[in-house]
Computed example of a mutant assay.
Amino acid sequence: MVQEVFDAYSFVFEEELLEEISTVGIIKEFKENERIIEIGDHVTSMPLLISGAIKILREDQDGDELLLYFLERGDTCAMTLSCCLGHTKSEIRAVAELPTKLIMIPIEKMEEWTSKYKSWMNFVFESYHTRLSEMLDTIDTIAFLNMDERLLKYLRDKAKINQNELVQITHQQIAYDLHTSRVVISRLLKKLELKGTIALNRNSIKVIDL
């Protein structure tokens, strides 16, 4: 476990803090599409992503989901940080985009390390800034882009996260993530295919124009 933590976070934290993380942290592993955090959960520890990828989702009053952003190796979730520090329930759903390994940090250590390690404090503030920027980007995408542009951006993001131009996904799942209907997604995918931007296969989409 120590080596995995060093590999993922040695560029962020000093050796002493990395050793503390390895000592107090608890490793958890999740399968692809497994839920990691549910809306309404009490969050008592902060996740540091060692490998894999996570998508962070919000839910409206009708139960429809909206994708906010992705997390990758070396990241943490600012909204989870807020829940931990504020002792509030989770307002997001976190789902493993790929097979994912996390190290969970107890809430009391988060507070202790903020005053003890400058690198930890910087990491927390930078995480807030990065996630806020990504959420603003999501808002801009919804407000200013046409649905076909949103769809193409979504597919490009998925391809980059998975490091594979072939995105294994159904039209219905895309519709859930983009908060629209499967019929709309199917029509727009066909439109993008005619443009030569993507190639459609059964339950997968090849993103040609990355």
Rank of each mutant, 00 (worst) to 15 (best):
M1H: 13
V2Y: 11
F6S: 06
D7T: 13
D7Q: 13
A8C: 13
S10W: 09
F11K: 11
V12R: 12
V12W: 07
F13Y: 05
E14Q: 12
E15W: 07
E15V: 14
L17A: 05
L18W: 06
E19Y: 06
E20A: 05
I21P: 15
S22H: 11
T23I: 10
E34M: 09
E38Y: 10
I39G: 05
I39R: 09
I39F: 06
G40V: 12
G40E: 02
V43I: 15
T44A: 08
S45A: 12
I50C: 10
G52H: 04
A53K: 04
I54E: 02
I56R: 04
L57V: 04
E59V: 15
E59D: 03
E59P: 07
D62Q: 13
E65M: 14
L66V: 15
L66D: 09
L67S: 02
L68Q: 10
F70L: 01
F70N: 08
E72P: 01
R73D: 05
T76E: 00
T76R: 09
T76S: 14
C77N: 08
C77P: 06
C83G: 04
L85A: 09
S90H: 06
S90E: 00
S90N: 05
A94R: 07
E97P: 04
K101N: 01
I107H: 10
I107E: 08
K109W: 07
M110V: 15
E111W: 09
E111D: 05
E111Q: 11
W113P: 12
W113E: 03
S115Y: 04
S115C: 04
K116I: 01
K118G: 06
F125A: 09
E126K: 11
E126M: 11
H129E: 00
R131D: 00
R131T: 00
E134R: 12
E134V: 07
M135N: 03
L136C: 09
T138I: 03
D140P: 02
I142F: 05
F144V: 09
F144D: 00
L145S: 13
E149F: 03
L151C: 07
K153H: 00
K153M: 04
L155H: 05
R156A: 01
K158Y: 00
K158H: 03
K158N: 01
I161C: 01
I161T: 14
I161A: 02
N162F: 01
N162K: 14
Q163S: 12
Q163H: 14
N164K: 07
E165A: 01
V167Q: 00
Q168H: 12
Q168R: 11
I169H: 02
I169V: 15
T170E: 08
H171L: 04
Q172H: 09
A175F: 10
Y176D: 02
L178A: 00
H179R: 13
T180R: 04
R182W: 04
R182G: 04
V184A: 03
R187S: 13
L188Y: 09
K191P: 09
E193D: 03
G196I: 11
T197F: 12
I198P: 12
I198V: 15
A199K: 14
R202W: 00
D209N: 14
L210Q: 11
L210A: 00
